[in-house]
């Protein structure tokens, strides 16, 4: 039982760390695009990115299950050509989790970039610096607090994710069973003692993450950054 407890926590952490790492890599260029592009369809993309904020996770989970299903072309193609089965697998949950966490990563980064004066970017250009040098040496270091906020928020949110994980991954111990699902299972089976332990761990992680966010954003109104 103790090993199952640790195994579930490990799956939870593995999912949160992988999701956050992937989102940092995707989120930075994406936030840059959303902050500075004059692309006409940008509001459409922004709306799509923010959908997880308003949609019930079960809705997104449901669409993922449909997409992964071998009955439809995408899932069929995955199974036939690549031999991959995503439904009820860790990878399947990870992909859904990345998409679901996108607004929590992108929005603070985008707001951070928009909060910088345009002249910083322009000054670097007039000094002969390329866009990538400007991004890594000027923009990124000056939105450090936004980066920390984005990472902590994405991580904390992912740790507590329930609906999408149970829809896409089911609750397979050691594979897709995460702490939030375990709490539900244990309460159903009246194992309140174990549920209590899970709850405490989740509570502590979220509390630490939010404390980090608030302390790096002392000077700003934190929720504006989100």
């Amino acid at each position: 039982m103790n090993s199952e407890f640790l195994e579930t926590l490990w799956v939870t952490l593995k999912l949160a760390i992988s999701t956050t790492a992937i989102l940092v890599i995707i989120g930075l260029p994406f936030a840059y695009f959303l902050a500075y592009s004059k692309f006409k369809l940008k509001p459409l993309i922004e709306a799509l990115v923010s959908m997880p904020l308003v949609l019930p996770p079960t809705v997104i989970g449901y669409y993922f299950l449909v997409a992964y299903s071998p009955k439809y072309w995408f899932g069929h193609w995955l199974g036939e050509t690549l031999g991959i089965k995503l439904a009820f697998s860790f990878t399947g949950v990870l992909i859904a989790s990345v998409l679901f966490g996108l607004p929590f990563m992108v929005q603070p980064l985008q707001n951070g970039l928009l909060g910088l004066s345009d002249s910083l970017r322009e000054a670097a250009y007039t000094l002969g610096k390329s866009k990538s040098v400007t991004f890594f040496r000027i923009l990124l270091p000056n939105i450090k607090s936004s980066v920390i906020t984005a990472v902590a928020l994405t991580f904390a949110h992912c740790i507590g994710e329930f609906g999408i994980v149970i829809m896409v991954g089911g609750s397979i111990p050691g594979k897709t069973k995460v702490a939030s699902i375990a709490i539900f299972d244990e309460v159903q089976s009246m194992n309140l003692d174990i549920a209590n332990r899970y709850a405490f761990v989740l509570f502590a992680i979220s509390f630490v993450m939010l404390t980090i966010i608030y302390s790096v954003n002392k000077k700003h109104e934190t929720w504006k950054m989100i």
């Binding site: 004066s117 002249s119 910083l120 000054a123 670097a124 250009y125 007039t126 000027i138 000056n142």
Partner: peptide
């Protein structure tokens, strides 16, 4: 020509010094 290729020195009204 891109600003990078123009070999100029530009002083902005707000100076645009890099805070980091």
């Amino acid at each position: 020509l891109l600003p990078q290729k123009r070999n100029i020195g530009y002083m902005f009204q707000d100076y645009a010094l890099f805070p980091n």
